[in-house]
Design a protein around this nucleic acid. Structure first.
Length: 387
DNA sequence: GTATGCTTTCGGC
DNA sequence: TTACGGCCGAAAGCATAC
């Protein structure tokens, strides 16, 4: 959802008024969130590890325990192990416990995810997959607008996936995506939470403003300065005050979102918006030739993926993670889409030179590359036909 | 001042 | 030596146009 898009706001405004006239018109949306997915799949593959902490890791290849935690099961989480922390500190937290550390196996997780998604999709009027372990289902027609039937459907889906794939997940049900997503997060793992339209206010009002899509650290701080901490407090603000602080578009968005209003449709996602690869260097360096060796490999990787999917790209970006783990990036956008591998490599070299010219002190730990502003072959031909 | 769109950084998983 | 992945989309930052 692009909340800055005026067109969407106008549509929302229209639908709102339509709703006033026709009150029984509301949706039933389900959000499904697989529980600690990677670690859960590993437990399924080897049930013997189920009663121990399971930590799925990405090893960087630098030293024995260099790398970060991708996911951990709930037993490991009790010891403070969670996604993103260094493997070494996870081991420290678990030093007194018999635990299982595994390397990520994306091929396996992708295959399991695909099977499950294909089953779930069958129960939705419309289906929107978010990454490998989340999905929104529009089920209004499936359940004829009944939240009771939506609950039954959710239980049925849970049972079927447990029987067929031995995977559990948490489900949230609400009148829109915003509510369904927050609801899914309330009871985890293996939860089922439904919020009916008449329950929206009591459900949302005690929650921190940060839970709203569109509210990041900066907006949260700004709201705190105004004495607004909860969604309920935000909903009580008058529209003029919010728009005077946050601007017309964003202020109006905050106002409606805090009231639990979200008209963004459940929509089949198209192609990914970007394709990227990143890798950790064997040693920190400022030697461009050394980094380019890696970047060329990444470029070939990204390029072949884009070719498989029939995509051209208009933009290339290079990212460097410096020795202090701060991230720096530079990008370039072309006039016309291309699918040329050499364009990626040449552009990457120039961008990397630029980046190092601006960042003169630190050496580089990781390098990565990204193509974006992707154009599907068919769309491109159409554009050309009409252009 | 406000809306828009592009670039860079952040943050969730 | 305190010390960490890889991917994605969202959020923040910034430039430009009106």
């Amino acid at each position: 959802m692009n909340i800055y898009n005026g067109e969407i706001l106008i549509i929302e405004y229209f639908v709102l008024h339509k709703l006033d006239d026709d009150a029984e018109l509301f949706r039933v949306v389900m959000h499904i969130d697989f529980d600690y997915f990677f670690a859960q799949v590993e437990e399924r593959e080897n049930p013997a590890i189920k009663d121990k902490p399971v930590v799925v890791c990405v090893y960087s290849g630098r030293g024995e325990d260099s790398g970060a935690v991708s996911t951990a099961n709930y037993i490991a989480r009790k010891y403070g192990v969670k996604s993103g922390i260094p493997i070494s500190s996870a081991k420290k937290k678990l030093r007194d416990v018999e635990s299982v550390f595994l390397q990520v196996n994306h091929t396996l997780y992708d295959a399991v995810s695909k099977k499950i998604m294909n089953i779930i999709r069958g129960y939705a009027d419309r289906f929107e997959q978010i990454g490998v372990d989340e999905a929104f289902l529009e089920v209004t027609e499936q359940v004829d607008g009944s939240f009771e039937r939506a609950r039954e459907l959710a239980a049925k889906i849970k049972k079927e996936i447990l029987d067929k794939e031995e995977i559990t997940f948490s489900i949230g049900i609400g009148p829109n995506k915003l509510i369904a997503k927050i609801a899914a997060g309330r009871q985890k793992p293996n939860g089922l939470t439904a919020v009916r339209p008449e329950e929206i206010e009591q459900f949302l009002s005690p929650l921190p403003v940060r839970k709203l899509v569109g509210v990041g650290v900066k907006t949260e701080k700004a709201l705190h300065r105004l004495g607004i901490k909860t969604i309920g407090e935000l909903a009580k603000q008058n529209l003029d005050k919010l728009t005077s602080v946050f601007g017309m578009t964003f202020g109006a968005y905050l106002h409606t979102a805090a009231s639990g209003i979200d008209k963004s449709p459940v929509q089949q996602r198209g192609r990914a918006e970007s394709i990227s690869r990143i890798t950790t260097l064997k040693e920190n360096t400022r030697d461009i030739a050394e980094m380019m060796k890696q970047i060329e490999k990444l470029a070939e990787n990204v390029h072949s993926k884009s070719m498989q999917q029939g995509l051209s790209f208009k933009s290339v970006s290079v990212v460097a993670v410096m020795e202090d783990l701060k991230m720096r990036s530079r990008s370039k956008t072309f006039q016309n889409p291309t699918k040329n591998l050499e364009t990626i490599k040449n552009t990457a070299r120039i961008l990397l030179q630029q980046l190092l010219r601006d960042e003169t002190e630190k050496s580089v730990r990781r390098v990565g590359i990204k193509i974006f502003n992707l154009v599907h072959d068919k769309e491109q031909r159409q554009l050309n036909d009409f252009g």
